[in-house]
């Protein structure tokens, strides 16, 4: 089931990136794709009925969920934050130059 959600989110995000005309919407689309990927990673490490992977606190004999995907996701979230911040600041600059967020207006580089 979570994989279906991942697929739907991925499709939505890609749709937003490819077809929306507004820069902010493209940034949102990118964030959605990113969340889809994070969800995908975290789902991979899920073990049914298991406890959080804290070695010293887990009761003996209980299964633990995989810690590695959680570490990966955490890293990916941090990177995603940096990308979003960077992209948004570029969009602010673009708005100052062009006075619009419509990508059809951002056409000075062609050919």
């Amino acid at each position: 089931m979570p994989f279906v959600v991942v697929g739907v989110m991925l499709a939505l995000g890609l749709y937003a990136i490819l077809f929306s005309k507004n820069l902010i919407k493209i940034a949102i689309g990118l964030s959605i794709v990113e969340s889809a990927v994070n969800l995908f990673l975290i789902t991979l490490g899920y073990v049914k009925g298991a406890v959080a992977p804290i070695y010293t606190m887990a009761p003996a004999g209980k299964k633990m969920v995989l810690p590695t995907p959680q570490a990966l996701t955490l890293t990916a979230i941090v990177i995603g934050l940096a990308t979003t911040a960077m992209l948004l600041s570029l969009i602010v600059m673009a708005y100052k130059h062009y006075g619009t967020l419509d990508i059809r207006e951002l056409r000075r580089l062609r050919g």
């Binding site: 990118l30 990308t83 992209l87 570029l90």
Partner: peptide, 23 residues
Amino acid sequence: AESIEAAIKYMVVGSLSALFVLI
């Protein structure tokens, strides 16, 4: 303005392809 435009394109393309790598 051109630099910003190029950077936005690069940023969107770059992070999207990096996310594909992550998948």
